[in-house]
Design a protein around this nucleic acid. Sequence first.
RNA 1: GGGCGCGUAGCACAGCUGGAUAAUGCGUCGGCCUCCUAAGCCGAAGAUCGCGGGUUCGAAUCCUGCCGCGCCCGCCA
Length: 589
Amino acid sequence: MEILRPYVEQVLHPALVSLGIAESNWKSMIAPSRERFMGDLSLPCFAFAKQLGMAPNLIAEKLQSMIEPTEVIDEINSTSGYLNFKVSPIWLASYVASGQIRVGDATGEYPSGDRAVLIEHTSANPNGPFHVGRARNAILGDTLVRLHRLHGNDVRAEYYVDDMGKQVAVLAWALANLSAERVEEILSDREPLNELWKNKADHERVRWYQAAQVLRNDDDYKEDIEREIAAMVHASENGDDKVLASFENAYQPVLDGMLQTLGRLGIYFDEFTKESLFVTNGDVSKVMQKLTELDIHGVADNGAEYLDLGARGLKGKTEFYFRRGDGSSLYATRDIAYHIWKFTQCDNLINILGEDHKLQSKQVSLTLTEMGYKTPEVLFYSFIKLPEGKMSTRRGNVVFMDDLLEEAKAHAAEVVKEIRTDYTDQQISQIAEAVGTSAVRFNIIKVSPDKGFTFRWEEALSFDSDSAPFIMYSHTRSRSIAKKCHDLGVDLSRINDIDTSNIPDSMYELLRIIACHNDVLARSVKQNRPNLFASQLLNLANYYNGFYRDCKVIQGGKVNHSFLAISEIASQLLKSGMIGLGITPLEQM
RNA sequence: GGGCGCGUAGCACAGCUGGAUAAUGCGUCGGCCUCCUAAGCCGAAGAUCGCGGGUUCGAAUCCUGCCGCGCCCGCCA
């Protein structure tokens, strides 16, 4: 509870001075209390023991006896070497009611901070529909975008479009050389295209891609295809307009289909930057020229060039190749040019990458440092497995995000239909869409990014556990109360009177959670860990439910304005926080 | 084989610049709808902090060895 910190420091300072502790590094030792019942902030006294020649628990007790409770801190206690400070309910209630707890805006319309942050996420090759594994990037990335905005940063969300190279070339080759009949013939042993996605280009065209991959492994065709594709790749890397245009015609509809899926999850981008840009505008050549001039530069027998990053602490394979023997650039080289450009657009740069990119990212960062540039922050995430093993488009062992969203919506609709018998079909559909997409997002966000997990349908569709619907439900309760109060003639824009003579425990506990809300948000953003804020929102919803139980806003047709004020503040924080996580706030459900 | 990361109750997660009885949520079990939406609330049980050593007055936290899981080790992207 950072809002309490200055008050704690103020009362602690004279006491510590009179004990003979003058330095001020004790300030950094003040931390949130371990247990809620003990307090809000605590000072561990172990570090003073040596200097004072006293046992820590005695120091804590001594300090306690020297400090009088104040209007802000009404409880000071010491237990086993810790001095605990607890915030006064009356002061806290007034503080919260006065509107000083910042309710951020995750839509990013009114950035209040001074940091311009560029977050690059997803950037998936446009060759087929999202499966759940690939979507983890988009969901983590978009959540980070939203949380940074909620925190006040000015954020730009970027998608780096891989519009050159082998993957797109394969797709373009297949579309140019294979008929629909031929594709289906090649894929005859696979599951057919789901009827639902028949006109969605990402699902349609991925079959061409898959068929081409089959042929590329077929001895009868392999060599010819490889030669043709290699020629296309080569041309694209040299900035050949015609080939790049044919690539774009091949991938753009696929990308559009993929973005449609992301749109359903509330994921949008501010900017799409094509990889080819840095080849055609000369940046890549300049980068390669500069790299050639570095001390750690080396040349292979056939003229390929690399940097020896072993000299800069990289272990394992230390040669980092940036130019092929034929003089063309590599993906990583272009990525360096892209990073240099990105740094001209922002103060902070964040990349969301799968754990398979760890080495590559390290190489890029070391190289950027070598060239004198800043390096990006990177959020790595582990892959999502299926019970049957690794997800693989090639082997058909995938769960498509489109299918998951359909299932989630259908499941949500069943639940709504069962418990809200008076809702219309349209209401049910709207609620089910919100619940389904929110639940899918939340189930991915709540898991720590560096931990891999296994996708299970029953967990992905579970709404009664640790879930988005739980949070959504608390929020609709608060809206329902507000609506009732409005109908009773209360002006909701003018409620900030708190009856400090009546602060039940569950209201106090809710206030304490509210008081830490922005602390958690700041930490979540600073450390790029969306799951921390997800947990905070779950807590907020939980304590709101406790408040709801004990503090009746409306009783016997009369409105308790004090409770209503707190309910409304909690409601706003729930709503802004939900938008921050990409959960859809509903008025009723 | 080498490198990087992960391993905390049935599940998920916090704590990891060493320090309080390892916190929180879900699930489980038991209870609660004449009461603002029971998609809810209350209570209880549940942890060899992967395993073994070491450093320390004190280790989930630091060091080390092992085990398990993931990823990487292309002049691919």
